[in-house]
Design a protein around this nucleic acid. Structure first.
Length: 842
DNA sequence: CTAGGGTTAG
């Protein structure tokens, strides 16, 4: 080998690989001058790792740091082995150390590397590779300016960089908000002078998508296509697919759908997995109906074949997450009729739906059918069923199922045992039996097991037993799991005060979900003072609350109409340097508007802008309810795009303010913007026309919406009935499976009272309660007023009594002020009926 | 860790 002369310096004859393993070059014992170092490095051409460790040794040596040529030599070796990452980390080291004491700059180094190569082509490649690595190194140590600067420098020298480098640079440009740079970058990428291989662009786009910059990928796709850079059909399909999926991962569903649209417009048939990404994206975004609509549209276009088990299970989950369990089951039936294959995930959602509806036997039955279809149930399927049985008190059945698992050679895991143990405990059955069983099977209970049992015991009312178990597990405290079980148990048992007392006494942190459960229960029970104390206690214990809790707390204060406390908490946050987010500001502004504190709303709006939080279309929608004209211009200057929600509010508000001209203009603008009206928009319009006494136009709109296959909802029918009580909509509503709500019943009651049919009104009131719809203040007020007006004083008193017993209070005085503003017409009438009620009752 | 917006009733 060519290394013979150098071996003399090492004073050794060991092989390269052994040396690299040990890294045992004893530099210290050698007197090496620069020439010597270079000669040693020449011998290491075939062992980059050895060269690197050799360099490190010299660096560590102290008195004579490696020269620029020594670095250049190592870099050339590492480069020739394509060890790009090593190269970058070498540069990171050099950059971190800075220039001091080294005597050369990074540019010197770059030149030294390139100059040493005589072959022009090789020199070009070498320089390109090295500068790429250097750009990446700068980005890694967050010296973005240097990275960008160097990148443009490479450009001038006509070197080239790889896709990863482009990625790092575009990331840096966006991060710095350098619009001009971005522009320049994009045109460089597309210019014919610097045209690269197709593979480069594919790598670059993929890189954008995995680094959460899919939007940039989307922006580039069309120009790349137009510039004939991406021409190959299958490449285009891949690139588009990655961009759509990337956008879905980043929750940019609107953009994802529009990218998909572009894709289809170019005649590319997307892979089904692209569709499923969109569906899942919508679902994760909690836009369930959008997810379902998307599938329906695609099915209409391409037929049912696009529904694979993944899409099917997403759809089923959408129904369930909307709480529409029977609809989920109808969907299962539909899938089966269409011969769409379902997998165990789909079936699992179906079991869950049946269980939620209390149809445990049918769940088990379906489980058997699934098995007959040749789908082998897994441990998750069993867990769902066993948990479901326990939830409905079918402990025997649950135990049978766990035995079945064993007999079929599917040993239950810790999760199944935990679910069963907790389930038995909450049914006041013997949970210790499960613990015993676990012991026999060699599955060790964890603190989660104990936590679930304790929680179950509390739900079953066996407080002493739970406490005794807790005491016996004292040493289990660290994770806080078991104590958390106690708190959650009290929460679930509806004993919130005890849960809170328990929680406040604990001086160690609990699992985060415990805080969240208690917090959510307190908010739901409107015990917001305690919810706030909980947050403060978390701070004391050094547990960082989930950021959403701040917004939720403020939202809770807002919901009960206590803006003062909301603002006070906002100040506490300010003191802790926590900036409220867009959500929080929006709900505060909404509440101020609702309570007619318009100045306060405006102040908040300005404050959020000042603190760099950009209002979005939701914020503007909230504000549009008050002064639509001013808000409209502000929104448009800020570049926020209106959507259906916004237009519906604007149109409705203009009509309410009798500004028909602006209302019509808004409708036109909406149409021009390609925004399609939906149920709510139509309903608002129908209502407005009724109020303008244009009954024909109102009803025509109702027919039009149905023609356009926009399904009316309970609000639409409520509006219709409110203005035209004689309409018979019962059948239609039943066919469309529209559930009646408080508003709907209240309109009926009010109408019957007006025509003196008090008994009929009372019957409807009863029907409402029987169908599980809780009457609220408004409905009570309607029935009470109706009874009084028609001389049914005793009935009125009875209803009044009932209302009080339910703890239903009239809304705070401030709130009704705004109501007065919104419904000027009926105001006097209402005031009369209210005094009448009071006169009659006291 | 799900949080904020539109249409209806007194």
């Amino acid at each position: 080998m060519y290394a013979v002369p150098a071996l003399a310096y090492t004073n050794s004859t060991i092989s390269h690989s052994e040396q690299s393993k040990e890294g045992n070059f004893d530099v210290n014992s050698l007197e090496l001058n620069e020439v010597g170092v270079l000669r040693v490095l020449t011998t290491m051409r075939d062992d980059p790792y050895l060269a690197l460790s050799f360099l490190k040794r010299i660096e560590g040596n102290g008195d004579s740091l490696p020269s620029v040529s020594a670095y250049a030599a190592v870099i050339r070796i590492v480069c020739s082995w394509s060890l790009d990452e090593k190269l970058s980390s070498l540069f990171v080291g050099i950059i971190r150390k800075g220039d001091q004491g080294r005597g050369f700059s990074v540019v010197d180094l770059l030149n030294a590397v390139g100059d040493a190569e005589e072959d022009e082509k090789l020199s070009f490649l070498l320089r390109s590779r090295v500068s790429s690595a250097l750009v990446k190194a700068y980005a890694e140590v967050e010296m973005f300016d240097e990275a960008i600067h160097l990148f443009w420098g490479i450009d001038q020298l006509r070197w080239d960089a790889d896709a990863d480098t482009y990625l790092v640079v575009v990331q840096a440009l966006y991060r710095k908000g350098d619009g001009e740079g971005v522009e320049k970058f994009h045109s460089k990428l597309l210019s014919s002078e610097t045209r690269k291989h197709c593979g480069f662009y594919m790598d670059f786009i993929e890189g954008l998508c995995v680094n959460e910059m899919s939007l940039v990928g989307y922006i580039l796709l069309r120009p790349l296509r137009d510039a004939n850079i991406l021409v190959d059909e299958s490449d285009l399909a891949t690139a588009y697919g990655k961009v759509v999926k990337g956008l879905c991962n980043e929750m940019k569903l609107e953009e994802a759908e529009s990218a998909l649209h572009d894709m289809e417009e170019c005649g590319i048939d997307p892979d089904v997995s692209v569709y499923s990404a969109v569906v899942e994206g919508h679902r994760k975004n909690m836009s369930f109906s959008k997810a379902l609509r998307f599938v329906n549209d695609k099915v209409a276009q391409k037929g049912e074949r696009i529904i694979n088990p993944v899409i099917a299970s997403s759809m089923l989950q959408c129904w369930c997450q909307m709480g529409k369990f029977s609809e989920a089951l109808d969907q299962v039936v539909a899938f089966r009729n269409l011969n769409i294959t379902l997998d165990r995930f789909c079936y699992n959602v179906a079991f869950d739906a049946l269980i939620k509806l209390g149809r445990v036997d049918e769940a088990v039955e379906l489980f058997r059918e699934m098995t007959c279809e040749g789908i082998d149930p897994d441990v998750v399927n069993y867990t769902t069923l066993i948990g479901g049985c326990c939830q409905h008190g079918r402990c025997g059945q649950a135990i049978d199922l766990i035995m079945e698992m064993e007999s079929k050679g599917k040993p239950p895991d810790i999760v199944v045992y935990n679910v069963l143990a907790g389930g038995l405990a909450r049914n006041a059955e013997n949970a210790y039996g499960v613990l015993k069983l676990m012991e026999d099977r060699g599955v060790k209970p964890t603190s989660v097991t104990h936590s679930m049992v304790i929680q179950g015991l509390i739900v079953a009312g066996k407080i002493d037993e739970a406490e005794a178990l807790y005491q016996s597990l004292e040493e289990d405290k660290p994770g806080g799991n078991v104590a958390g079980g106690i708190v959650k148990g009290y929460c679930e048992a509806g004993r919130l005060d005890e849960a809170f007392e328990r929680f406040i006494r604990l001086d160690f942190p609990l699992p985060k979900n415990v805080y969240f459960t208690l917090f959510a229960s307190l908010c739901a029970a409107k015990d917001i003072d305690k919810a706030q104390k909980l947050v403060e206690r978390m701070w004391e214990l050094g547990v960082e609350p989930v950021k959403s809790m701040y917004g939720k707390l403020i939202g809770a204060w807002c919901r009960v109409g206590d803006v003062r406390k909301a603002i006070r908490f906002l100040k506490v946050l300010k003191g802790r340097e926590i900036v409220p987010d867009l959500f929080t500001y929006t709900i505060m502004i909404k509440t101020c508007c609702r309570l007619n504190k318009l100045k306060q709303a405006d102040a908040l709006f300005r404050d959020m802008k000042k603190r760099g939080i950009r209002p979005d279309v939701v914020t503007y929608t909230v504000l549009a309810k008050n002064n639509p004209e001013e808000i409209d211009t502000d929104m448009k200057t800020c570049g926020v795009k209106p959507d259906v929600f916004y237009y519906t509010t604007a149109i409705n508000t203009y009509y309410r303010l009798n500004n028909e001209k602006r209302a019509r203009a808004a409708i036109q603008e909406m149409k021009r913007g390609g925004i399609v009206p939906d149920v709510a928009t139509y309903t608002a319009l129908i209502n407005s026309y009724y109020r303008l006494n244009n009954r024909k136009k109102a009803y025509d709109l109702f027919l039009e919406m149905k023609r356009r296959r926009i399904c009316p909802d309970v609000v639409t029918y409520t509006v219709l009935l409110n203005h035209d009580p004689k309409l018979d909509v019962k059948r239609e509503m039943r066919d469309l499976r529209i559930k009646r709500d408080v508003h709907y019943y209240t309109v009926l009651i009010h109408h019957k009272c007006k025509t003196g049919e008090v008994e009929e009104a009372e019957r409807i009131f009863r029907e409402m309660k029987e169908s599980g719809v809780e009457p609220d203040v408004v409905s009570y007020r309607a029935i009470i007023a109706g009874c009084l007006r028609n001389g049914y004083v005793r009935d009125a008193k009875r209803f009044f009594q009932e209302m009080r017993e339910k703890g239903i209070e009239p809304p705070p005085a401030e709130a009704s002020k705004n109501v007065v503003l919104l419904h000027t017409k009926s105001n006097t009438e209402r005031r009369v009926s209210r005094t009448k009620i009071q006169e009659a009752l006291y």
